[in-house]
Simulated assay, not measured.
Amino acid sequence: MQVEHKTTAERLALFSDAVIAVIITIMVLELKAPEENATFSALLPLWPTAVSYLISYLFIAIIWLNHHHLLHFVKYVTPGLIWGNFVHLFFVSLVPFTTAWIARTHLASAPVALYAAVFVCIDLAYCVFERLAFEQADASELPEHVRRMARRRSLITLMIFAAAMLCAMAAPWAGFALICCALFTYLVPELRILHVTDKPQT
């Protein structure tokens, strides 16, 4: 039974990795080279695409990193985990569309607000997935203070994304800057989690 559970968890990870790889590929296809112009100056008008792509790529990399560490706590895959993962990946799959829109409109208000709204949805779905994964960890694997840190981080990040969504309607650059700040809260999983999940099995 344990082998089946392990295999199922591995399949969940492999499926998520494949979806994320496709999302990154779709985003790369939006990077269009200048036509009929072989000078470096032709690249300058493409700066909104470069900036939005860089932030979105970093965001997806952070998603993969945190997802990878959460799966260390999954001992068996439940229907809740599967559907939570599907919902999370669905909202992540919207990132290429919103990235292309803010690039083509040079970070206009409505596209940046929608971009932030997608981040809000992704963070909400991630919070659910995180909670379900943590439920399978006992106190020795994941102390209560680490759980509190994770909940606090999720709440703070969610508030920043929501503020960015509202701010973008009046000041899109400020909203985009808030999104960038929020991403760094998930840049590295908690040190305690890294320590626990990386320790050798006995």
Score class of each variant (00 low, 15 high):
Ile62Ala: 04
Pro34Met: 04
Val87Leu: 15
Glu190His: 13
Val128Arg: 15
Pro111Gln: 04
Ala177Met: 09
His5Ser: 12
Ala177Glu: 06
Trp173Cys: 02
Leu44Thr: 12
His68Tyr: 12
Gln2Glu: 13
Leu187Asp: 07
Ala164Pro: 04
Ser52Glu: 00
His68Glu: 06
Ile156Cys: 09
Thr98Asn: 15
Val28Thr: 10
Ile63Ser: 01
Leu54Ser: 12
Ile26Ser: 09
Cys180Gln: 05
Met165Asn: 06
Leu89Pro: 06
Phe176Ala: 14
Tyr115Met: 10
His195Leu: 10
Pro111Glu: 08
Phe119Lys: 15
Ile193Tyr: 03
Ile62Gln: 00
His195Ile: 04
Val112Ser: 09
Arg153Phe: 03
Ser109Asp: 14
Lys75Tyr: 08
Glu141Gly: 02
His106Ala: 15
Ile193Pro: 04
Ile179Glu: 07
Pro48Ile: 07
Glu144Leu: 11
Tyr76His: 14
Trp173Phe: 13
Gly84Ser: 01
His68Val: 01
Ile26Gly: 02
Phe184Met: 10
Glu30Gln: 08
Arg192Pro: 02
Leu94Asp: 03
Arg148Asn: 01
Phe97Tyr: 14
Ala18Tyr: 02
Asp17Ile: 02
Leu31Cys: 05
Leu114Thr: 10
Leu29His: 01
Ala100His: 10
Ala164Gln: 00
Thr197Lys: 03
Val77Ser: 05
Val22Ile: 15
Lys32Pro: 00
Asn85Arg: 01
Tyr115Asp: 12
Ala177Thr: 07
Lys75Trp: 03
Ser16Met: 08
Pro79Lys: 04
